[in-house]
């Protein structure tokens, strides 16, 4: 089942890329579509940050992940490279769990 889901999602992502190159431009040049689609990643990524930091299953929780996100936010503000942002969050969680 996992494989089916992974490959279906991959196929969907590929078809979206191909659609942009292949479909007549006017189909995708609708002004509302043009300004709505770029908002989708913003909303989804923000929702992912929130839910994966502050929940476990169906419960809202506050644990070391919140501190990890805080450190990551500082790294982002300092314009640290992607890998540094991710590694600093992981290290924060690991260290706090040792305490």
């Amino acid at each position: 089942m996992l494989w089916v889901g992974l490959l279906t999602a991959s196929a969907a992502c590929y078809l979206l890329k191909l659609a942009g190159l292949s479909l007549p431009a006017r189909l995708l040049q609708d002004a509302r579509l043009q300004r709505t689609i770029p908002l989708v990643p913003i909303a989804l990524l923000a929702a992912l940050v929130a839910t994966q930091t502050f929940s476990t299953g169906h419960h809202l929780v506050l644990d070391v992940r919140a501190a990890a996100l805080g450190v990551a936010a500082i790294a982002v503000l300092l314009r640290a490279p992607f890998l540094v942002v991710v590694a600093s969050a992981a290290a924060t969680a690991a260290l706090l769990r040792l305490v």
């Binding site: 992974l6 979206l16 890329k17 942009g20 292949s22 995708l28 689609i37 989708v40 990643p41």
Partner: peptide, 23 residues
Amino acid sequence: VWAGAAAAALLGARNALYGVRLS
């Protein structure tokens, strides 16, 4: 996995707009 697939596809929608500019 299907919730993940839906999120992945929604995030991939912007690539269609890039395709329009690139074609």
